[in-house]
Every structure is written in structure tokens, then in C-alpha cells.
Amino acid sequence: MVFPGFMNKVPMAVLAGALGLGAALTAAIWYWGGPKHTEVGYSPKQPIPFSHRVHAGDLGMDCRFCHNTVERTAVAPLPSGESCMSCHAFVKKDSEGVKRLAAAVAKNEAIPWVRVHRLPDYARFHHGVHVQAGVSCLSCHGRIDQMTQVRQVEPLSMSWCLDCHRKPEAQLRPAHLITRLDAVIPDPVATGRRIMESRHLKPSTDCSACHQ
């Protein structure tokens, strides 16, 4: 006898081990390899620590005060430094961040804000169309009004977009509640269905809707 008896078990053990490892690896890549892990949670430090919690939450400023063309244009714009200074020329003008802001505005320099929500360049998203349809900021950006440092909460992946394009009811709101992130919609699906009918909404699931 050349091999000891336990060697009989080795092929099976190797096979079971390889299968187990393969399954574990597949599961890990499936779970952590996609946008639900790689995109969600991104919360970069900004050059000036601007708090949405203070401005949109505590002060109750409407999202559209700063992101003013979001109802009409593809992009929800960042406000100009002058917009900030219309208040911060007086309020909290001794804080470190406001001083840096004022210096940048005086020199007509751009503030290098770090983008949080970013779609690939081959996907086109139009903010105006979605806001006009009744999709709240909340659906894609979460409770921004509670975030001190903005954090991505949705994967913004293609399957996630399509989930809503196929079943948009629960994400649609009456126009006056679009930017009210704390609003509770009593029967969201029935409300959404009414909005879909009245505005003749038919979200496209064609490739060319987003990949133009």
C-alpha cells in the first residue's frame, strides 16, 4: 500500500473545498461587487463644510433656492458663490468656511466642490423631466435635509433606474410636495397611479431613453 487510508478522502475534500470557495467567492462578488456597495455610502469631504442639515433641514430652505433650475434643466445646478454671500455677508461671517467662501467669491474663483452623485458619461439623466413627472428629490438622494455631509444612499445603477421606470407609482408625488422631504404621502401607490394617469406618464424602458 503506497498511500495511507485517509488519502481516499482527499479528492472529495479538494472538490468540496473548491466548490465551497467558489460559492463563497461568487456570493462575495455578487454582494459587494455591485453599486449597492461600491457606490452607496460615498460621502466625500467637501472643501467647505456645507451642511444640508442646517440649510435645508433646520432653516427649511427649499431645495430650489440653490438648485434653482432643477425643474427645467437636465442638471440641478450648484449655486453661485454670490448666492451664498447674499446671506453669509452677514450671517456667520467669522467662520472659517465662510471666510474661505468670501475669499473665493472676491477672487472670482470656483470652489472645488466634490461631486457625490455621478452617473457614467454614457447615461443621460434629465432632472427637469423627472421633477415635472412628480419624482421627489427624496427618491434618488434620500433625506438630504438630515445630512451634515452629503452621502449617496441609492446605487444609481441601471437596474435601479429600470425598477422605477417599470413601476414608478410609489415614487410620484403631487407637485407641491416634491421638495418636502419629510412629507408623508398617505397612499403612495394610489396617489402615484392618479398622477400617472393625469399626466399621461409612460416611463420609457428603451435603451435610447438614457443612452442617447
Binding site: 449597492k36 456597495h37 457606490e39 452607496v40 455610502g41 460615498y42 458619461d121
Partner: peptide
């Protein structure tokens, strides 16, 4: 499992960045 989508300051990693940045 609970680590999924946790807060991070590091930008997302894209394994296949084809045409993402044109």
C-alpha cells in the same frame, strides 16, 4: 453583510470604467 454600502470618503471603484469618463 452589514458592511454593504457603508460610509466612506473614498470615491467608488469602477472595475470596468469603459467610457464612464469621456
Amino acid at each position: 453583510v452589514s458592511c454593504r454600502g457603508g460610509r466612506t470618503e473614498r470615491p467608488p471603484i469602477h472595475l470596468n470604467p469603459n467610457m464612464m469618463n469621456q
